[in-house]
Each structure stands twice: as C-alpha cells, then as structure tokens.
Design a protein around this nucleic acid. Structure first.
Length: 293
DNA sequence: ATCCCCTGCAGCCACTTTTC
DNA sequence: GAAAAGTGGCTGCAGGGGAT
C-alpha cells in the first residue's frame, strides 16, 4: 500500500542520493528505508532506483515520479497545516540570536492579535535555521542573507530590513581621542569581533575590508548584546550591524560611528517553505507588524 | 584490505481487528 | 471490555558487492 511515509522517505532519498543519508535525516535505520523504498516500488509497480553496488540513482520512472510526489506532499502539508484560520495552532519560528529580540516583540503582538496561535520561538545560526526549515522542523525563520545571494530551492525568501554596519565605541573613548576617526580609535583600542563562523561575522569582516580598517584582535564572541555591554564597560570597540530597534544612538555610554559611505548593509529576511500557504500568511503578518513599528 | 552501502532475515513492539 | 491473533514497521545483525 502506498503511504505518505513512503513518499516522504522517497523525497529524502531523492534529495540525498542515498538510503543511508535519507535514513539519518528521517531518524530511521538504513534497513527501514530500504524496506520502505521496496514497498513503494511494489506499490507503484515500477523500478524507481538503479542499485549499482554502493551507488543508487533514480531511474527515469523515479525521476518522473519525484515532482508528482512533491506535489502530493505539498498538498497534504497545506491540508494539515491550514486550519480554516491560518492564525491558529502550533507554529515554530526560528531566528538568529541578533534578530530574536526584535522578533520576540512582534511574536508577542502576534499572540495578542491571535490567541489561538501557539508559537514556539527558537534560535540558531542562519545556515542551521535554513536546514531546519527545509526539513520541516521549523516553520518560519528570520535569517541573515547569504553573502553569495543564493536561495535554497523550495524556500521562499521575504526581505525584512537592512542594517548598516557601524563602529560601536565607548563615548568617553571617542571624546578623549584627538581628531577621532574609526582607524585612530582602532589603533588605540582592542577589537571585539563578532563570531566569524556565522554570516553576521562574515559581514563584519567584509565591512572592515571595504572600509580598509585594520584591527587589533582581542576577543571573538557570538552575542551582539554582550559585545555592546563590553563596549559600555570600555573593554574595547567593535564593528556591528546597527540593530533594528537597537536604540544605541540614545545610549549615553555609546557612540555610533559610520565607517563607510554608503555603509555596507546586513540584510535580514524571513524564509518559509514554498507551497505552504499557512506559513506564508503568518510570515506576511510578521512582516507587516515589523514594518508598522 | 578496508570502507561504505544495500539486501535479507529474525525478532521485537505497537497498534488494530477479531473473538469471546 | 478484555484477551488473543494478526499486521505493519522497526531494529540489529550478517553478508554481498563495488569503490577507494
């Protein structure tokens, strides 16, 4: 008998090109995947895989079946994820750490407007969140745009806002530096760097190079708020995205200094799966609320 | 030779259906 | 309603075959 489970597993096998990799993604053993795929072949009465030693490839029939199975899975996802009111039921929203502050305020507004919506908020790195959305573990995610501008297949990207890259420096330090400019401050003070393993860290690196600034590395960490707290304590200076809703300019302990004109921008946007009308509706509501503030 | 991945099989478990 | 039987799907293990 043809089951949705078989179709989901078939999609994973087609995407990964291996029973073992599909098994890992589906949290099954490889033998279970093998059994399911044989069951699927029996059910459709066609050979879907060429099994040659340790390699498997989709046969012509398998390749023809793939888009049809994708269509069926999208329809069932739409059916199960779309109650009469899209703003009801459970939804998992992910965000990179530097966006979760702004997002949590919007989620609170969303909950007030739609009490039936059961929101779970989670944070991870942009690339991890992209994988989680692709795998269906997370419904919607706010991530930093990839430097190469590539968008994974099957995901819809909605730009939210851009943030200029700026120097964040202690106000006393800035005022005490004669003829203060970004490089003169960096020459005299330790640099607090945002984690280069994540996309925001890469944007920082890009901004430093574009502005031809040289730094004396002191500490590398992955929390913008912690870096800003250290700047307030005069531990060092940093280059960061000027956070949406950050309100650093009003902070008496901070000085926000542009490092390039026009500034390099960090782009933040939302991703959700294609063919999923419910997450599309929720994303639209989040985007609307973010822009209204 | 070793590694990786697939198939086959026995046994287990959870769930459903049947019987009393 | 409870117990027994049937069914489906899983794991773990052994073994085969191609790639490195």
């Amino acid at each position: 008998m043809l089951t949705l489970r078989m179709m989901k597993t078939f999609r994973l096998v087609a995407q990964t090109g291996s029973f073992a990799a599909a098994a890992e993604r589906a949290a099954l053993t490889q033998a279970a995947v093998s059994l399911q795929m044989r069951g699927l072949e029996d059910a459709v009465g066609q050979r879907l895989f060429d099994r040659r030693g340790r390699q498997i490839t989709l046969t012509r029939q398998g390749r023809e079946l793939f888009p049809r199975i994708e269509q069926i899975l999208a329809l069932t996802a739409d059916l199960t994820a779309s109650p009469l009111d899209a703003m009801q039921g459970p939804v998992t929203i992910g965000a990179v750490v530097s966006v979760i502050g702004a997002l949590s305020l919007v989620v609170a507004e969303l909950k007030t407007a739609h009490p039936g919506l059961d929101v779970r908020l989670t944070s991870a790195r942009s690339d991890e969140l992209t994988d989680l959305v692709e795998q269906g573990e997370v419904d919607i995610a706010a991530v930093v745009a990839r430097a190469d501008d590539a968008r994974p297949d099957g995901l819809v990207w909605t730009p939210l806002y851009t943030e200029p890259m700026v120097m964040v420096v202690n106000r006393e330090v800035w005022d005490a530096t004669p003829d203060a400019n970004p490089q003169s401050v960096l020459d005299e003070h330790a640099f607090l760097r945002f984690d280069r393993r994540v996309r925001t860290g890469l944007v920082v690196e890009q901004a430093l190079r574009a502005a031809k600034l040289t730094v004396t590395e002191y500490l590398e960490l992955n929390s913008i708020e912690t870096i800003v707290a250290l700047v307030r304590k005069n531990v060092g200076v940093s280059v960061l995205p000027l956070l949406h809703r950050g309100d650093w300019q009003a902070d008496p302990l901070l000085r926000i200094v542009p490092i390039a004109e026009p500034p390099l921008l960090r782009t933040v946007g939302m991703i959700h799966r294609e063919h999923d009308s419910r997450t599309r509706d929720i994303t639209a509501a989040i985007v609307g609320m973010l822009h209204d503030v």
